[in-house]
């Protein structure tokens, strides 16, 4: 426990020195469960840490879940999957973790913080995000590689960057980006602002930004499909609620919400 505390302090220090400027809403310590009357079935408070790309879908699913389980109150904390994983291993109180990649989930399971085996509940794949109307006419991965285009990729350290590398490697295409963004939303906003001509982002993100951005599908994306795992956590304050939520996410009702957002079923 002492080591974890120190890790948490270290993490805080790093975030502070680095300006703590991730675009996503990353309020690490929120949603401390008040553990009130959690004995009765799935009642009480439930804290879910979820990847930022799930924000819109999980907000809807949360409402559906509360309707299906009266008396349960779900609180979501969205953020970068790696950051969330670090919070969990540092002892952040939470009941469920939904990650954007198996690698980040592995951080939590390796540390022994998961209860049971993670289940893949959706898949996401990459598209080429271009400004609305595709003014530069970029329709393929190969076109992106042309030197006259400015391209943004995610940094390899984050899931969307790893996926992009996988797809590019599989297609034997070399793209030199002008920037390696810290997350998919940042890459997308560079497209929105017109600073770059194209970026590789998840289909769900392109769909959420459909007002400003078109998503161009490309066949090589099949090589880099991203699995989203979900798991109940060992230190859950509300274990029954946690497993109920994990199950609920995989019901057709929840899957429909996710599909509408652009996710694919596993």
């Amino acid at each position: 426990m002492k080591a974890r505390l120190l890790t948490a302090l270290a993490l805080t220090a790093v975030l502070v020195t680095s300006g703590c400027g991730s675009g996503s809403d990353d309020d690490g310590g929120s949603g401390t469960p008040a553990a009130s009357g959690s004995a009765g079935g799935s009642k009480g408070k439930l804290t879910v840490l979820a990847a930022a790309s799930l924000t819109e879908s999980f907000d809807k699913i949360g409402t559906l879940f509360e309707q299906a389980n009266p008396g349960v109150e779900v609180t979501f904390s969205y953020g970068g999957s790696s950051g969330l994983a670090t919070q969990i291993t540092s002892g952040a109180p939470a009941d469920v973790f939904a990650a954007a990649s198996p690698a980040t989930m592995k951080t939590a399971t390796d540390a022994g913080d998961a209860s049971g085996t993670p289940a893949t509940f959706v898949k996401n794949q990459l598209v080429i995000a271009v400004p609305k109307g595709n003014p530069k006419g970029i329709t393929s991965l190969a076109a992106m590689a042309k030197p006259e285009f400015k391209v943004a990729l995610c940094a390899e350290q984050v899931p969307c960057g790893a996926a992009a590398q996988k797809a590019l490697t599989a297609a034997s295409i070399k793209v030199t980006p002008v920037t390696q963004e810290q997350d998919v939303k940042a890459a997308l906003s560079k497209v929105k602002l017109g600073e770059v001509d194209a970026a590789l982002v998840y289909r769900t993100d392109a769909k959420a930004a459909a007002a400003d951005v078109d998503g161009v599908e490309f066949p090589e994306s099949a090589q880099a499909i991203n699995d989203y795992p979900i798991v109940a956590l060992k230190n859950a304050v509300n274990p029954s609620g946690a497993s109920a939520f994990v199950t609920f996410v995989q019901t057709p009702q929840a899957q429909q919400v996710l599909t509408e957002a652009g996710f694919q079923q596993p």
Partner: peptide, 17 residues
């Protein structure tokens, strides 16, 4: 450096430290 720290944090806490 701060950008490198932030990205290292995504993958490898030790590197970030």
């Amino acid at each position: 450096m701060p950008l490198a720290v932030y990205l290292a944090l995504e993958q490898d806490l030790d590197a970030a430290i």
